[in-house]
Design a protein around this nucleic acid. Sequence first.
RNA 1: GGCGCCGUAGCAAAGUGGUAAUGCAGUGGACUGCAACUCCGCCAUCGUCGGUUCGAUUCCGACCGGCGCCUCCA
Length: 458
Amino acid sequence: MRLALYNTLSRSKEPFTPLDADRVTMYVCGPTVYNRVHIGNARPAVVFDTLFRVLQSQYPNVVYARNITDIDDKIMKTAAELGEDITELSQRYAQAYFEDMEALNCLDPNIIPYATQHIPEMIDMIERLIAKGHAYTAEGNVLFAVQSMANYGELSGRSLDDMLAGARVEIASYKKYAGDFVLWKPSADNEPGWDSPWGRGRPGWHLECSAMIEKHLGDTIDIHGGGQDLIFPHHENEIAQSCCAHDGQPFAKYWLHNGFINIEGEKMSKSLGNFRMVNDLLDQYPGEVLRYVILSAHYRSEQNFGKDLLDSAWRSLDSLYGYLRGQGDGVPTLNKEGAGYAALLDDLNTPVAVSEIYRLAKEMHGASGDHKAQLRDQLLGLANLMGLLQQDPEQWFKQARGGDGDSISEAEIEALIAKRQQAKADKDYAGADQVRQDLLAMGVVLEDSREGTTWRRS
RNA sequence: GGCGCCGUAGCAAAGUGGUAAUGCAGUGGACUGCAACUCCGCCAUCGUCGGUUCGAUUCCGACCGGCGCCUCCA
């Protein structure tokens, strides 16, 4: 069974063949750190984290880089509003991003490059582009001349004329051609800037990814990922920069793009004020619930986030943890012959892989002995590949729900359970039921079994 | 205007040219002192209209409906 991925470049699913099986390279566009990240930022992180895990199951050495954009006009604007240094601001939000991603069970990428730490590399790339006739200077700016590249627009499937026909933005007068984009732009004295051959300034947005990929991963990489909205112009321009700087060598072999997340049927936007920050959602839901929601849909489809979906996902995970409860720790073991793994290899079909977890859970439930333990390990192995079921089942059910900090303590719960046991022993069912009702009112559900009574928060 | 996507049960979501996985919710039953958990069962004809085909939800066309990008938004 081989990995197949949908390549935006060819608009079709292709078998994945790395350039070098001993060093598989993947780059994913990370966040611009000027605020807490929203759930839309979490989708590519979770999706490509899952791909990272799958790749690691197939190849011994996978190098995954995800950048931090820490110089950008939005950062400058926010920093100015807060009266804060841009470095402090971006550091703070980068740290917050890492915490959010950790809560979503995302593994750390191997490389986390920062834009501001690669200014010399960017300047070097610009100089090469100018030397090769792909870029020019104008009024302190350096611009990429898209007409100098024969197949510009290949990724997004747009012709230059088409793009300009629908342009809804004013064209800067200094551009030789309306579609040209900025590689370097001048900074005012009160703006952050770096010295360069073209004066003090800062890099254009697209340039950082090209420069950092070149430095850390090489001229041509295997996989480049990001959100669908980045196809144009961001990724198109990355291709232009890198291909032209490398005399036409391919930039990325496979381009993968995740779909958008909407909120209650509407796009997240500032005007609607409906951003859902990961951090806020984590106050209400375990990170794994957010991850489960993201993986319950195929990564390329549009996904609609809402309270009902999150609540439903939580109950779904309860069900899975319920099967695992009392089954021992287990040793996650990936069954490479299993249907779940096959689904993941088939362009990351996580919904099918998740359904396979349920199938394994039920089969495990009905099995016994070594076979049961084996199924448990396979279930955990498959879940591991998706970053799910990473918690201890007992802890899962005892975690606080809904962000209520004033819930009853575990000791008090245990005491009440003991009291109820006594009532049951005395055949005082009314009393026993009263205890159960009281606990339920405090968000604790009791479950009796032959071995005794267990509880969970609901 | 250009490029592209989507429309499957109450909700979510896979999938296939031969009558549709899975989860949540609902519902009937078993289990239980009663519940919860668990188990057994039930719960869709795949936007509309045509075409191709022995046969289409799956291919083609039209239409209706929803949406994205073309603006340094994941």
